[in-house]
Design a protein around this nucleic acid. Structure first.
Lengths: 336, 336
DNA sequence: ACGCTGCGTTGGACCGTTCCAATACCCGTT
DNA sequence: AACGGGTATTGGAACGGTCCAACGCAGCGT
C-alpha cells in the first residue's frame, strides 16, 4: 500500500505523451488524435488514475461545487428538499457538498466557513434559522439562496419559501369551517418561520372574531416540542377542540400527547400540522396538514442559485410558493 | 462585486510581511512574534481573508476530510447514524463531506468518484447495498468503513453492523412468546441485510417447529414496500396473526395497511419492525421493534476509520453490535 | 571584538492541475 | 523545392497554499 496516487504525469509517462495532452484527453476536449486518446485511456486505466479535484479547482479557479447547509437533518422534510436541490444541481453539471448545522450556532458557522474554504460556487441554506454571523461572511463572496424563509430584504440573498402567514390562516380556516372555535396554536419557537405561522393563526382568529380564544403554547419544530406544547394546551382550562401545530414533526408529537390522554383524534380533538412531510401521509398517521411543495422548493432554489451565479448583479428575489391544504384523518367536524 | 478573493499574498502585503509568515500565523504555529501576529490578524480581518482549501490540500497532500455516502437519506435512521459519525469525525479534527446515493447505481458510483477526487482521507458508507464497482475503486486507495453490513470478508474494508440474523430471530422469539404461530415476514428486498433478517426469521420459525408456517412476502425498505407486502400477506389464506417487517419504515407502511383493512393493532394483528428509528417511538406510532444502536454505530464506524487511517495495514475487522428488543404498542398477545 | 545560539523571518521550490503561446508535423499549393 | 495553413502536441507559467533551508539580528559567553 502507501502507493502514492498516480498523477497526470505518471499517466503521461506511461502513455508516452506530455501531461498537457493527457489533461486535454481527460476532458475529451476535441482535438486529440484517436491513437493518443486510446493510449492515454489505457494508461489511465492501468494506473487507476483519478484527477485531483484540489489541483483542478485551484488551476480552474472554480470548484464546480455547490454547498448545502441543512440545519435539521432529522426533520424528514429536509430529505425531500435536498432531493430537489440535488436533482437541479446535477442537471447543471455541478456537484453538491452537504454539511449539517445544528443547535450549536458556532459549529454551524464553522461548517459554513468550511464550505467557503472549499470555494463552493454557491450556497443553499435549508432551514428556518439564519446562522448568526454567516450573513456577513457570505455576503459579497458567495451566491446564496435560503430555503424556507423570506429574506428578499437582505441584499444579495435570494430566498424561497411558502407563504407561512397565509398557511397559518389556511389552517385556521379549515378548522373553523369544521365548526371549531377554541383553536389552540403550538408554536415552533421564535424563529421567523414559526412567528409567521403564528401570526397567520392570530390574524385569522381575530378575523373570525375569536380574539378571545387566542391561545399559543410554546413548542418547537420537533416531536418533543409538539408533545410538550400540546400537553400544556390540554392542561389549560380553555377547552380546546382543535390544535394547529407549527409543523408536522411537532404535530406527530401532538398526536402522541392526545393518545396519552386518551383523547380520540379527530373525534375529540382535531390536529393539523404544517409542512407536508411524506411520513405524515402514511395512513397510520394520517395527518391533516398545510403542505409546502418541498421538492419544488429545492429545485427552484437551485435554479435561482444558478441564475445568480451567472449574473451576480441581478437584484435579489424572493420566490413565494403557495401552501396547500391536505386533508387527512386528524381533523374532523366539531361535535360540541 | 467580482472582487477576487484575497489570497495569502494580499494579506502579507497589507501586513508588511512575507506570505510564509502569514501562513505560519494562520495556523498559529508558535514562533510568530506578537506584533506580527496582531498585524496579520488585522490584515486578514480587513480583507476578509479565508484560506483556500484546495490550495492547502494540494500542498499538504491531505484534505482533512472524510467522505460519507448515505444511500437512503429518506430513511430517518440515516440521520441518526450520521449524527454519530459526525460527532466522532469532528472530535478528530476532520471534516465531513456528505453525498447521497440513490437507486441509480451509476449515479452513486459517480458520487463516490467525486469524493475520491476530493482526496477524502476516508470513506464511510451508510447503507445496505454495496455500490457496484465501488469496491474496486475504493480498494487500496482509501480507507473505508461500511455501516450496516458485515463485510469483514472483503480485505481492506472494515465494517460495522448489528447481527441481523440474531435480530430476525429475536423478532420471532418475541412474537412466539406472545402466543403467535402464524407469523409472516415482509422482506426488505434482496440486499444482504434484508436476507440476513429473513434467514433469522426462517431459522427461528424452523426452530420452533413452524416450518409449515413460513411465509415471506416481498417488500422493500420503504413504507410503500411494507404496505404492499402486508397487503399481500393479509390477502393470503394463511391467517397471519403477526408480522415481522424487515425495517421500521416498512413497518409503518404495514400499520397503514392494517388500518386500511380495519384491523386493530395489536389486538387483531401484531407488527414488529427493525431498526429502532426515533420516529417509531412516538406514542402515536408506538412501534415494537428490534433496535440497532444507531448513533453508536456511527461513532464506532468513524473511530474504526481513524484507526485504519493511522495504520492502513491492520487487518480489517467487523464490529458486530447486539440488537435489542424494544416493546411498544404494536405487538400483543395472541387471542385465537 | 568574536563567534555561537536561537528566534523571527524570508525566498523559493513544490503540490497536480489548466491554460496559453509556441512548436512540430503533415499535406496540399504554387 | 519552398511555402502556407491547419492540426496535434508540448513546455512552462500560473493557481494559492505549505514546507524547508537559509538568513539577519539580538544577546550571550569567552
Amino acid at each position: 500500500m502507501a502507493a502514492p496516487r498516480p498523477t497526470i504525469k505518471d499517466v503521461a509517462a506511461l502513455a508516452g505523451v506530455s501531461k498537457s495532452l493527457v489533461s486535454l484527453a481527460m476532458r475529451d476536449s476535441g482535438r486529440v488524435s484517436p491513437e493518443s486518446l486510446t493510449a492515454i485511456r489505457a494508461a489511465a486505466d492501468e494506473l487507476g488514475y483519478r484527477p485531483n479535484a484540489a489541483a483542478r479547482s485551484l488551476a480552474d479557479r472554480r470548484s464546480n461545487t455547490i454547498g448545502v447547509l441543512v440545519q435539521d437533518l432529522h426533520n424528514p422534510i429536509s430529505a425531500e428538499i435536498i432531493d430537489g436541490v440535488q436533482r437541479q444541481v446535477r442537471a447543471s453539471g455541478y456537484h453538491t457538498m452537504l454539511v449539517t448545522g445544528s443547535e450549536d450556532a458556532e459549529l454551524e458557522q464553522s461548517e459554513i466557513e468550511k464550505l467557503l474554504e472549499f470555494q463552493v460556487e454557491g450556497l443553499v441554506i435549508i432551514g428556518h434559522r439564519m446562522p448568526a454571523g454567516a450573513r456577513a461572511a457570505i455576503k459579497g463572496y458567495c451566491p446564496t439562496v435560503i430555503i424556507s424563509r423570506a429574506e428578499s430584504d437582505i441584499a444579495g440573498l435570494d430566498s424561497i419559501s411558502n407563504d407561512d402567514n397565509a398557511g397559518g390562516r389556511m389552517a385556521v380556516d379549515h378548522l373553523y369551517s369544521l365548526g371549531h372555535r377554541a383553536i389552540a396554536h403550538i408554536t415552533g419557537g421564535d424563529n421567523e418561520v414559526a412567528l409567521m405561522r403564528k401570526s397567520g393563526y392570530e390574524s385569522a382568529m381575530t378575523g373570525y372574531g375569536l380574539a378571545a380564544q387566542l391561545a399559543s403554547y410554546e413548542g418547537a419544530f420537533t416531536d418533543e416540542g409538539g408533545y410538550r406544547g400540546t400537553c400544556a394546551a390540554l392542561d389549560s382550562k380553555m377547552g380546546h377542540s382543535a390544535i394547529f401545530v407549527a409543523n408536522d414533526l411537532a404535530a406527530v408529537g401532538a398526536l402522541a400527547a392526545a393518545a396519552d390522554r386518551g383523547l380520540k383524534v379527530p373525534d375529540e380533538l382535531s390536529i393539523i400540522g404544517y409542512d407536508g412531510m411524506a411520513l405524515g401521509g402514511l395512513r397510520s398517521i394520517g395527518l391533516t396538514t398545510i403542505a409546502q411543495p418541498l421538492a419544488t422548493m429545492g429545485l427552484d432554489a437551485a435554479a435561482l442559485l444558478f441564475l445568480r451565479i451567472k449574473d451576480p448583479t441581478r437584484p435579489p428575489v424572493h420566490i413565494g410558493l403557495e401552501p396547500r391544504l391536505v386533508i387527512r384523518n386528524s381533523t374532523g367536524v366539531y361535535h360540541g
